[in-house]
């Protein structure tokens, strides 16, 4: 038995913790939120379902969609804030910050592009993300923060008391910067498409790197562990 175990071990690779538990949880909560928000968001933009006929005025379908949109909106805000904190302060996830070094290195940039064009080997990177990945994630966060901002502007115009009332002042200021509520709405919709495109490419690249990278890249987001080549 011990011999079998020994023979199963891949000799040139070692197990390494890529993502901590906090990271993995926020990733999947965020993924779920994005799916719920996109589906309910498209309904809010163009209500494609009608509620069953009901003599009593109790079937508030649109309000229900809006509620779920808001609930998951606030869930998303929470995990995004948490993730932002992790990025800047977590010791365990220092490898994310290290990526900035690779991002600023033009040699790594060229090598990475050549890898995806199937010309060269994958460059050795110091951090968690390669430069292209880093750019994609930075633009993801820019889009998500703009979505949160436009979302909160729309929120404060529907809910005038409580949290909605608290943020009303600054949000109305941003509303006028956007040039009116209809433009805010339009930006919210456009940014949603940005996120959809990001998710599509993100999932493809994750699978691609998992298959060709042969490091168990996809496993890392579930178990946190990755098989790194021994250097």
């Amino acid at each position: 038995m011990a011999q079998l175990n020994e023979s199963l071990k891949i000799p040139c690779k070692e197990e390494e913790v890529e993502f901590g538990v906090a990271f993995r949880w926020q990733h999947w909560i965020r993924a779920l939120s994005i799916v719920v928000l996109a589906v309910s968001g498209f309904y809010l933009a163009y209500p494609f379902l009608s509620p069953p006929v009901n003599a009593e005025p109790t079937g508030f379908l649109y309000a229900l969609f809006r509620s779920w949109h808001e609930i998951f909106g606030f869930v998303l805000i929470s995990v995004i804030l948490y993730k932002t904190f992790l990025f800047f302060f977590s010791k365990q996830h220092a490898n994310e910050r290290t990526s900035l070094g690779d991002f600023l290195n033009p040699k790594v940039w060229m090598a990475q592009i050549k890898y995806y064009l199937l010309i060269e080997k994958h460059p050795a990177i110091k951090g968690a993300y390669n430069p292209l990945q880093f750019v994609a994630y930075v633009s993801f966060y820019i889009m998500i923060f703009l979505l949160i901002l436009t979302g909160l502007i729309l929120y404060t115009n529907v809910y005038h008391s409580g949290f909605g009332g608290l943020i009303n002042g600054p949000m109305r200021f941003f509303e006028s910067l956007f040039g009116g509520l209809s433009t805010v709405r339009l930006f919210h919709h456009i940014l949603t498409w940005g996120i959809i495109l990001f998710v599509t490419v993100h999932v493809y690249m994750a699978i691609y790197n998992s298959i060709f990278g042969k490091e168990g890249g996809m496993d890392a987001i579930f178990s946190g562990l990755k098989w790194k080549k021994k250097h």
């Binding site: 890898y115 995806y116 080997k121 498409w193």
Partner: peptide, 25 residues
Amino acid sequence: GISLLTVTAIGIAAHAAISAVKPPK
């Protein structure tokens, strides 16, 4: 959005197909 998504999907399909025939180094 749908047009861009379609272009992305075509790009992904092409890249995946080429990579399957000629894997990255």
